[in-house]
Amino acid sequence: MDIAFLSQTMATLIKAVPTTLLLFSLSVFFGGLLALLIVWMRVSGNPLLSGFARGYIFVFRGSPLLIQMFLVFYGLGQFGVIRYSFLWPFLREPMVCAVLSLALCTAGYSAEIFRAGLRAVPTREIEAARAIGMSGFLLVRRILAPVAFRHALPAYSTEIVLMMKSTALASLVTVWEVTGVAQRLISQTYRTMEVFLCAALIYLVLNFLILQALALLEYALSKHRRAPSAAAGPLPR
C-alpha cells in the first residue's frame, strides 16, 4: 500500500470538503424553506395551490436529479428572460446551479416527509390548542410544527444523508467538490481505486457525524416518550 500517495490524496480531497459542505448546507437550508412553502400549499385547502404542490412533488421526485441538474445548468441559459435578466450572473455559476437543483429536488421529498409529520399530529391536541384561543401562525409555531417535526425527524434524517451523497453529482456541472476533485486526480494519476476509496471514506465520516448529530437531536426531542427515569438520566450509548 502506498501510504505516501494515500495521504497526499487525502490531503487534496480534504481541501474540497468545504465546497461539499457548502453545497450540502445551502441546499438543505433552501430546500427546507422551499419544502415548508410546498407543504403549506399542499395542505392549504386551496385546490389551485394544492394542485401545484402535488405537481411539483411529482415532477421533482419522479425524475432523476442528474437530469434536473443538467436542465438547470445547460437549460436555463436558453431562455432569453433569464439570460438577459439581472439574475444571469448568478445563475451562470456552477455552484449556484448545483445548489438550485439540489434544493429544488430535496424540497419535493422533504415536503412529503413534513406532510406525513403534520398528519401525525393528534387531532385532539390541535383541538385543545384551538380551545384555548390559538389559531393561525401561533398554532403552527407552538403545536403543529414542533410535534410534526418530531414525527418527521427519522425520515428527514435519511433525506439529509441522501443529500450529502447527492452533492457528488455537482461534479458533473463542474463544481470542484470532493468527487469532482477525486475525478480530476484520477485523470492525472489513473489510480482509480485508491482515490475513490479516499473519497468514499470522507463521505462516510461526514455522514457519520451528521447522523450522530441528528440522533442526539432526536433523543433530545423525544423525552416525552421515554420512561420518567430515563428522561432524567444520562445519554445511553
Binding site: P122, R124, E125, E127, A128, A129, A131, I132, I143, P146, V147, R150, L221, H224
Partner: peptide, 12 residues
C-alpha cells in the same frame, strides 16, 4: 374546555 380524553399536549 375540558375534554373526555384530556387532550394534553404530549410533547410538553
Amino acid at each position: 374546555m375540558v375534554f373526555q380524553s384530556f387532550n394534553l399536549w404530549s410533547h410538553m
